[in-house]
Design a protein around this nucleic acid. Structure first.
Lengths: 205, 205
DNA sequence: CGTCTTCTTGTACCAAGGTACAGTATCGTC
DNA sequence: GACGATACTGTACCTTGGTACAAGAAGACG
């Protein structure tokens, strides 16, 4: 790690204290600089600015600094922005204010050829390969479920607790748990929160 | 790296020489074994068998060995198989006959929380994301929250557990719980499921 | 300088979620 | 009649979610 050269590219070019702590000796540069002095970087950290799109920023960095892997730092991480970053060639995407230890970990992964990508974004990418439109009808998520399971799934997706679903459907909480368990297994999701995302059309199964 | 325990799961349970060279002391097990003896693995290598689907194999490994990250080894790597592996929770996907140095590199990346994914597969995933559903602007649900709370709220709304949010933001699970509690109180919702509905635009707060 | 807000973290506890094992009843199919 | 699928339910247990009490650090503000 001591041999790597880190460039932090941001709007103002100054280094946050935690960046310096993570990588003593790292360079801080403004995105708008015409050229970057010194030894070529082995790793580029791009601190996103609200004033530019991720794709524009990455393209500019690419044009000026070449092919060193780039990790994007975002003040307000989100899946859309993450998608844009990876589409534009980033190798990592994380929070601007991550602790130094986390930054070093991300650096290690990316320097060794891996990706640093959030779990929810990865799931999003995987599910997008099915090309299912945002508002998933029950025919998709509900295709493998029984009628009762679909009822329970919809109630859960509206935010009901197991007790609430039991009251609503006139069955015991234990029966609701049985249905919920079967639904989670059939749809291969870990919990009711993810189930809700699928039923409400934020994910496809 | 010396402290990590590697399990190689394959049809016959024997270790290829290059696997042993990469990780002396690694255990070799048959996928069909009822149970795995010894110290829990820190990393699982699953050698795919033509006789089983990737999803079935990964599910079985998951059920028997728990949540250690899993890297899939394939004799005939391809994007379709790779997709299935990552969809089933794998953290890496590479060639069965990769050289020991490459295997150690993949192990490093995955043990540090990264992904090992092929370039063409990553491009495939990115190309599939053509349409992205609109999200409720943070100005509505996020107006009364602090910046950190909005970050936590968004992560939760994407389906993350408290542990997952903690990993993502580089803070402890206890801190995430503190933020989640504050968010639930400010938005006057009973739990993270309802929070998710608000953030994703299914409810007004 | 004192106060307040925000962020962070600890231990502890209780409720809810989810899983496991086990079982009965009904209905449709062979 | 046997069998499988579905719906329903029990006890038990473990994990996660959420709350309570407590506390320190840093930055902004009067």
């Amino acid at each position: 790690m001591g041999e790597s050269t880190h460039y932090f590219i941001s709007e103002k070019g100054d280094l946050l204290p935690r960046w310096q702590e993570a990588f003593p000796g790292a360079g801080g540069f403004r995105l708008g600089e015409a050229a970057f002095a010194g030894k070529p970087p082995s790793l580029i950290w791009l601190h996103l600015s609200p004033a530019r799109t991720a794709a524009d920023s990455l393209a500019e960095v690419r044009a000026k600094l070449g092919d060193a892997p780039c990790i994007v730092l975002s003040d307000t991480p989100g899946d859309e922005e993450g998608l844009a970053c990876f589409a534009a060639g980033a190798r990592g995407y994380c929070n601007t204010h991550a602790v130094p230890e986390a930054l070093r970990q991300v650096a290690d992964v990316v320097l060794q050829g891996g990706l640093w990508i959030g779990e929810s974004l990865m799931q999003r990418l995987l599910q997008a390969t099915s090309r299912i439109p945002p508002k998933a009808p029950a025919q998709t998520w509900g295709a493998t479920l029984t009628e009762r399971e679909r009822e329970v799934a919809q109630a859960v997706a509206c935010g009901e607790s197991n007790k609430g679903v039991a009251r609503q459907l006139g069955i015991t909480e234990r029966t609701v748990k049985a249905h919920v368990g079967a639904i989670l297994e059939k749809l291969e999701v870990p919990d009711r929160l993810r189930l809700s995302l699928i039923v409400n059309g934020h994910r496809s199964s």
